[in-house]
Simulated assay, not measured.
Amino acid sequence: MYFKGAGPVLFALLAIAFIVGTYAADYKTFLSHHYDNPKSNVGKNYCDVMMQRRGMTKPNCKPVNSMIHAPKKQIVDVCGKGGKAYKNGLRRSNKKFSVTTCKHHGGSTREPCKYRESKTSRYIVVRCAGNYPVHFDEGII
Results as ranks from 00 to 15, higher is better:
P38V: 01
Y23P: 02
M50H: 05
K96E: 13
H104F: 13
Y115G: 03
K44I: 12
C128D: 04
P112W: 05
V125D: 12
S32F: 02
F11E: 04
V134Q: 07
D26E: 15
N65M: 09
H69E: 11
H69S: 14
H105F: 15
C47Y: 08
G80N: 13
G21E: 03
K28C: 03
V76W: 04
A70L: 03
R116T: 13
K4V: 14
K103C: 07
H104D: 04
S118G: 11
M51K: 00
F30A: 00
S118V: 15
E111C: 09
F30Y: 02
A24P: 01
G5D: 01
H104Y: 02
H105S: 13
Q52Y: 10
E138W: 09
V9G: 08
A25C: 09
S108L: 06
V76N: 13
G89M: 00
D137P: 01
C47G: 08
D77K: 12
K62W: 08
S121F: 02
D26N: 14
Y2N: 09
A15M: 14
Y123P: 05
Q52G: 07
A25S: 14
L10R: 13
P133Y: 02
S93G: 07
Y132D: 12
V42A: 08
C113G: 05
A70Y: 03
G80Y: 05
P8F: 06
T29M: 12
V126H: 06
Y46W: 14
I68S: 03
S93Y: 04
T101K: 12
P8Y: 03
G130K: 10
K84H: 11
